[in-house]
Write a protein that binds this DNA or RNA. Structure first.
Lengths: 164, 164
DNA sequence: CGCAATTGTTGTCGTCAACAACAATCTTCC
DNA sequence: GGAAGATTGTTGTTGACGACAACAATTGCG
């Protein structure tokens, strides 16, 4: 937990001779505390690890989940549209869909109105699978609540609503 | 950042129009909204990009900045201690320090008390450089304030304080 | 002393963002 | 109607990053 945030300057003389070995929990972060990016990075690592662990039994990672969710809610989207909406490179989405298609969760249907693009749909298997994924994702979300508190999670979502 | 330049393809329905092409901003996220992880991921991408851009003139990335800050505040630390404190693999820290040492910002001093380890220090050049980095980082932090609001940034730091 | 643990290092593997190039196809404009 | 330009999906490369495994040198402990 390492909460002694009030520590200021734990430096011990080391300039030439003996090296002062300090425990990791005694090291001052100084300017790092107060940087939103640092806190957000650490939190994002934690939250992704919990997501990956909670959905480990179904082998679904956060990005895969977001793709499935968007396709499920908007059948027929093109790869370009999905990529743009989720902030994923379309080059990257190709591999993601290759994987999901091999697992029979998604299918690419050649669009007749624009033969360059594919209309993305969930398979029947994908629909039922996504339902299970959503239950597990909800469980993960409860872990977040346990970690930072229900009210804080709500506030967090509210603060960051503009980025979704 | 959900690039503002992606204002493309305002077309919505092709002439024969079987497949409905929708603009990216009209796509429903459904279950994705309400997931803390998704919002945090998008926010983290935005904040890192702004950090990288704001400190682009000095070519310092977030991880490099965190390493320099910790060493600056705690001279003489071993690589192990820095890695543990920042949640970086010690294997990864090797390359980070190689780069920073080549740029004459950091020096590894062989510890006499434990000849396995190195005591990490900023060079004189590193000290003055870090001062400049901190000014630019503060500017970046103001961008965050502009984006989500001063009060929200404070609240965010408070909520995520346990992860630093 | 001898053996386990630690430290820095090297290497591999997989994820992810950012680009670049390309063929097929569509749109636009002359 | 047709050439020129843009878009879509695809392949490939690069670099940052996290996770692991193995290794030599060194330390610490039984």
């Amino acid at each position: 937990m390492t909460t002694p945030a009030t520590r200021t300057s734990p430096r011990k003389r080391t300039s030439n001779g003996l090296t002062a070995q300090i425990g990791a929990d005694e090291i001052g972060l100084d300017a790092l505390i107060g940087h939103a990016g640092y806190a957000v990075r650490r939190f994002q690592i934690w939250i992704f690890q919990d997501f990956i662990r909670t959905l480990g039994e179904v082998d679904i990672r956060p990005t895969q989940y977001s793709v499935l969710t968007v396709i499920g809610a908007n059948p027929g989207l093109s790869q370009m549209a999905v990529a743009k909406r989720l902030g994923i490179e379309r080059a990257r989405l190709v591999h993601l869909l290759d994987s999901l298609e091999q697992r029979k969760l998604v299918k690419r249907i050649k669009s007749k109105s624009d033969r360059r693009s594919h209309a993305l749909h969930l398979t029947a298997q994908g629909e039922t699978a996504l339902a299970k994924f959503k239950r597990l994702a909800a469980e993960h979300e409860r872990h977040v609540e346990d970690k930072i508190g229900k009210a804080n999670r709500e506030r967090l979502l509210q603060i960051l609503a503009g980025f979704t």
